[in-house]
């Protein structure tokens, strides 16, 4: 579903992605973790081309992103992206946030888009908040609306960039619960997160990235029980017992 073949990217002199090889199979949930500045956001943002790659090959849903005939808008419509800071449209209600792209991009009939949006709000537990503006919602609620907004485009792949990092601790659970449902439903997901509970119980593979290189790529049982690379071991000690 997603294939990185020796992908490189530079920001000026900074080698942010230094030869990344990674495959995400259909229906798989892959968690990406690593220290701050290691290139996690950059990696996930290349998948829907919010960042371009400088070298290597990236294939998403069977399409080589370097191929000249690529319809980027169409590809992006099929890849949902959830941001750390939610990035809801502040001038629209929760419902309108969800229906905007289906109506304007996918050209869905308004009545149908609205019904689907209400169903999605129900699914993320916010059926009663359809008419609220983002500023009238808590962080956890905003992030759930943002997930519903991405799902409204009926994506084949969902990308999450630290979806719970901007949330107060008591709201993290509600967002993780929605993501857990989605994972169980068979969605292909790439999730940048430091929520090791999510990684351990809901992911198929955990990837550790440091200085733009993937140092560890293993199923969660193995990743947590026997991390091979010393950097992974050190990282895990830090995130699992922050007070060490």
């Amino acid at each position: 579903m997603i294939e990185f073949h020796d992908v490189h990217k530079w920001f000026g002199k900074l080698h942010v992605l230094a030869g990344v090889n990674l495959r995400v199979e259909p229906g798989q949930v892959v968690v990406v973790c690593g220290p701050s500045g290691s290139g996690k956001s950059t990696l996930i943002r290349t998948v829907n081309q919010l960042e371009r790659i400088d070298q290597g090959r990236l294939v998403v849903d069977g399409q080589d992103l370097a191929s000249p005939g690529l319809d980027l808008n169409r590809l992006r419509a099929e890849v949902g992206f959830v941001f750390q800071q939610f990035n809801l449209y502040p001038h629209l209600t929760a419902l309108e946030n969800i229906t905007l792209a289906p109506i304007k991009v996918r050209r869905a009939p308004k009545v149908q888009a609205r019904q689907e949006a209400l169903d999605l709000l129900e699914r993320v537990g916010l059926a009663d908040k359809a008419g609220r503006y983002p500023a009238q919602l808590s962080g956890g609620q905003q992030q759930r609306v943002a997930i519903a907004r991405a799902l409204a485009m009926r994506p084949k792949i969902m990308l999450f960039d630290e979806p719970t990092s901007a949330l107060d601790p008591e709201m993290i659970g509600e967002v993780l619960a929605v993501m857990g449902d989605l994972a169980s439903s068979g969605m292909t997901m790439m999730v940048v997160t430091h929520e090791m509970g999510f990684a351990r119980h809901l992911s198929h593979r955990v990837v550790f990235i440091d200085q733009g290189q993937i140092l560890e790529d293993a199923p969660p049982e193995e990743f947590f029980a026997n991390p091979r690379h010393p950097r992974t071991q050190q990282f895990l000690r830090q995130v699992l017992s922050p007070l060490h």
Partner: peptide, 11 residues
């Protein structure tokens, strides 16, 4: 980020 959110949705 508003532009990024819209572009991600396929606009």
């Amino acid at each position: 980020e508003q532009m990024e959110a819209a572009r991600s949705a396929g606009f």
